[in-house]
Design a protein around this nucleic acid. Structure first.
Lengths: 256, 256
DNA sequence: CGAATGCTTGACGGTACTCAAAGATTGTGG
DNA sequence: CCACAATCTTTGAGTACCGTCAAGCATTCG
């Protein structure tokens, strides 16, 4: 962690990347925004944060004072039971808005952990209402992102509830591949894939051992390749059919 | 279904229950609202709908033009896989706002089905932005409800992913009991409980048979009683501990 | 009274979990 | 640069939880 969580820096966001020069905003995965909107967003931003792989962006049982937009890297949301069993709720990729659920939760929320080096833009939770009030359009956009996030959790719930191991793995691989593809993270058919098998197991509600065997089986069927932290989808249609999961081409989303 | 989904009635909401006389609003589970806010909400409402148990409020693969607030009764959100396997995503009780996720989903969403006779207030999806724009506070409230809904799905995902059968049942019983209690639906320790065992199985990612055996086992341990559509929690602490699930007393929520 | 729906129970099998240990890979410090 | 530790992956053996199949029972409804 480069900056301590508290206190938040009071100084203006003298970060290297002003919002209007934000590289993410040039990504076609995101909706263009008016200069006015960008200015409002920037005025609410309190700085950037960087976390290394494995660090907690939001600790599970402590209410974070900050909301984030993930600028670069991969992270995940999770919950753990008292005896240590962990469930990954969803994965976070650039453009995802983080921490909204806590806003209205009386504690007892979820943790967020970085899987790669991660850069985030931070906002003060306390000023969320000001943002809605000052610029309802941005409030609408945040609702949009929240609804999109819930849709992903819905899909994961179907997966853990009703898919078998092979279907689960197929679904997850295609889901993450499509999301990465949309962001332009796929090169020559390969994506940098920072999940280890424990992550996959915890996301799918499987044991580590069974995850390994399932992954291996699909790979031997030549549906995908996963090696050295890189993923290649060889038979997208077969995986989509196996997982009964067909990610629609997504419209550009807002970027807060 | 008393009214056809389309076309929405253009006439003013000449329904029997104007919003400012809404009985739900007098329930302490909900935040009081200014007369102004209530007026705005009413101006966006296009009428009420009633569905009988078993009917579809929102069909799974068709985009609904309406958003709803559940006024009375129980319903559930679900998704089905191609071969018919069904997963219940969450249960809907009075005060819940329905259909928001579809707003931003390009099709491929979830269905909503009534479990009892259900009364809903309907809003036109197309005017959601107008609502945010006219009254940012209401937009903020909708985001609140969306975040609360996602938190419930998060919990269900932990359940299907990482809890065993006994823990799943314990968690679900306590979850629904607490929600009903909050709404004042518990009388003398009993709640009208409209789920059958297939609903429970589909919510928990279990088979019908195993759900039955688990339910029976917990009942023989004298943790709860479930009979004739009524639920009584006998050992709340034991169930909470078994399920490692402790529902916090919830703050009053907005009611749209 | 018969059909439909939902609940209950037993038998059996398989998917997925646990335990255990051996490779493989990466990182670190002497 | 190599040795050692730490982490991650792979594999096998044995088990158990949970699913499937099948059938009987209870309740409701027409």
């Amino acid at each position: 962690m480069i900056f301590e969580d508290l206190p938040a820096p009071v100084s203006p966001p003298a970060c290297a990347h002003p919002c209007d020069a934000c590289a993410l905003r040039r990504n076609p995965a995101f909706l263009p925004m008016s200069a006015d909107e960008v200015r409002v967003i920037e005025s609410f931003r309190v700085g950037t944060r960087v976390f290394e792989a494995g660090q907690s962006v939001i600790e599970e049982f402590r209410l974070s004072r900050l909301l984030f937009t993930l600028y670069s890297g991969w992270a995940f949301r999770f919950k753990t039971l008292a005896d240590g069993r962990r469930q990954i709720l969803s994965f976070l990729l650039p453009g995802d808005f983080i921490g909204l659920q806590d806003e209205f939760a009386d504690g007892h929320t979820h943790g967020v952990e970085a899987m790669t080096t991660v850069t985030l833009c931070a906002f003060e939770r306390d000023r969320l209402w000001d943002l809605f009030s000052a610029h309802p359009k941005l409030g609408y956009d945040i609702t949009w992102l929240a609804a999109r996030e819930e849709k992903m959790v819905d899909d994961n719930l179907v997966t853990t509830g009703r898919r078998n191991a092979g279907e689960r793995v197929a679904m997850l691989l295609m889901h993450l591949y499509r999301r990465a593809e949309r962001l332009g993270l796929v090169q020559d058919g390969w994506v940098a894939f920072p999940l280890n098998q424990q992550h996959i197991a915890d996301a799918l509600g499987l044991s580590l051992v069974h995850t390994n065997k399932t992954l291996r089986r699909l790979q031997q069927l030549n549906l995908h390749r996963l090696e050295g932290g890189w993923l290649r989808i060889i038979e997208p249609h077969a995986l989509e059919k196996l997982g009964d999961y067909f990610e629609r081409p997504m419209r550009p989303t807002p970027l807060i």
